[in-house]
């Protein structure tokens, strides 16, 4: 049995689902950030897979590199936000941060 495109797509889908579930169920901000990273990497996997199986020029890989760089920047911003969050609420449980009285 050879590895086909669909194997990678399944793995990406599973990874993305795992990311979503992590974001949904985690209350810990770092956990949520990890879920987001999972989703980003699922997308990266898809990009690389499509590039490998269908593409003539290596555009997909280039995109994946961009995503990795942006993810790093995003993590930096997110961590800064979490620091502030922790300063204000003495916790990084995101449910604690709800100040709206809806």
């Amino acid at each position: 049995m050879t590895l086909g495109l669909h194997h990678f797509l399944f793995l990406g889908a599973i990874l993305f689902a795992c990311g979503i579930v992590t974001v949904l169920i985690k209350r810990h901000a770092i956990g949520i950030l990890m879920g987001v990273e999972l989703m980003l990497n699922a997308a990266n996997l898809n990009l690389v897979a499509f590039d490998h199986y269908t593409g003539t020029a290596p555009h997909g890989q280039t995109f994946a590199l961009f995503v990795i760089v942006i993810a790093a920047a995003e993590a930096a911003v997110a961590l800064a936000i979490f620091m502030n969050f922790h300063n204000n609420f003495a916790s990084i449980d995101v449910d604690r941060g709800s100040e709206l009285r809806g």
Partner: peptide, 17 residues
């Protein structure tokens, strides 16, 4: 309508998903 705007992040995410 207020119920959906409760400031609970995970609800937002769930509804977006």
């Amino acid at each position: 309508a207020r119920g959906t705007q409760g400031g609970r992040v995970r609800v937002y995410v769930a509804s977006a998903v």
